[in-house]
C-alpha cells in the first residue's frame, strides 16, 4: 500500500518534466528547424535511392531475373533491412508532412501578390517548385507502391523456384506491368520529377544542415547535379528496357 502511494507522485513527476526539451520542439516547428528535418530525412532518402537503384540494376544481368529476384528476396527477408524499411517509411512520412506544411505556410506569407513577377534572377524554376515536384513524386510513389510494394508484402506476387526454394517473381511482375505503354510513360515522368526534385534537394539538404564552406557547397552542387541526372535516368531505363524487350 505504501508503495502504491508513490504512483501518483511518479506520474506527476513524469508530466511536469518535459520529455522533449523546448529547443527540440523548436527543431520540429520553427522555420529553420523544419528545413533541418527536411534536409536530414532528404539525405536518408537519397541514400535509399542508391540502394534501390543498385538492386534494380540486377535486371540487366540478363539471366531471366534470377539475380534480381534473389537480391529482392534478400532485402525482404533480412531482419535488419526490414527494420530499416520501417525507418524509411517514417522518414518518408516526416519528409512529406513537413514538406506540405512548409509549402502551405510559405505560400501564406504574401497576402497581396506582385503585379510583375520576380522571375529567374538568382533562382531556378525547380528550386521554386519543390512543393509541386515533391507532390508529383508522391503521386508516382503511390502508383509504384500499388504496383510492387503492396503485392510483395501483402497481396502476393507470381512465384518462382530456384534450387528448391520459392521466391517472389518480381521480375515477371515487372515485365507484366511494364508491358503497358501508359505505365512506362508515367514512370518516366515520375523519374523526371524526381530528377528536378533532386537537382535542388541534394545540395540544399546539406545547406540546411549547415554546410557553409564554399568549397564543399560547390562540390555538393556538382555532385548533386550528377546524382540528379544519373540516378533517375537509371530508374527510368528500367521500365523502358522492359517495354522494349531489352532484358530477357
Amino acid at each position: 500500500m505504501r508503495l502504491l502511494a508513490f504512483v501518483p507522485y511518479f506520474c506527476s513527476d513524469f508530466l511536469t518534466h518535459n520529455l522533449v526539451s523546448m529547443t527540440w520542439k523548436q527543431v520540429f516547428t520553427s522555420s529553420v528547424g523544419r528545413k533541418l528535418t527536411m534536409g536530414l530525412t532528404g539525405i536518408f532518402l537519397i541514400l535509399f535511392l542508391v540502394v534501390h537503384a543498385g538492386l534494380n540494376a540486377c535486371i540487366w544481368a540478363n539471366d531471366g531475373g534470377v539475380m534480381f529476384n534473389k537480391a529482392a528476396h534478400f532485402m525482404g527477408a533480412t531482419i535488419v533491412i526490414r527494420i530499416l524499411e520501417i525507418g524509411l517509411f517514417v522518414f518518408i512520412f516526416i519528409h512529406i508532412i513537413q514538406g506540405l506544411i512548409l509549402e502551405a505556410s510559405n505560400r501564406s506569407k504574401r497576402g497581396t501578390p506582385y503585379a510583375v513577377n520576380y522571375g529567374n534572377r538568382g533562382s531556378k524554376w525547380y528550386s521554386r517548385s519543390m512543393g509541386l515536384l515533391g507532390t508529383l513524386v508522391l503521386l508516382f510513389l503511390i502508383l509504384h507502391w500499388i504496383h510492387f510494394w503492396i503485392p510483395s508484402r501483402f497481396t502476393g506476387t507470381p512465384e518462382v523456384t530456384y534450387d528448391n526454394k520459392t521466391y517472389h517473381d518480381l521480375f515477371t511482375l515487372m515485365k507484366e506491368i511494364f508491358a503497358e505503354l501508359w505505365v512506362v510513360i508515367v514512370y518516366v515522368l515520375g523519374c523526371i520529377s524526381l530528377g528536378y526534385h533532386l537537382a535542388h534537394g541534394f545540395q540544399s539538404a546539406f545547406r540546411s544542415l549547415g554546410v557553409h564552406n564554399k568549397k564543399y557547397n560547390n562540390m555538393l552542387t556538382s555532385l548533386g547535379y550528377g546524382f540528379a541526372v544519373i540516378v533517375p535516368l537509371a530508374f527510368a531505363m528500367m521500365p523502358v528496357s522492359m517495354y522494349l524487350g531489352w532484358v530477357s
Partner: peptide
C-alpha cells in the same frame, strides 16, 4: 510572420 527559407537563391541575387 516571415516564411521559411528554401534556399532558392533569389535573395542573394537581389
Amino acid at each position: 510572420g516571415f516564411g521559411a527559407c528554401t534556399s532558392t537563391g533569389a535573395c542573394e541575387a537581389t
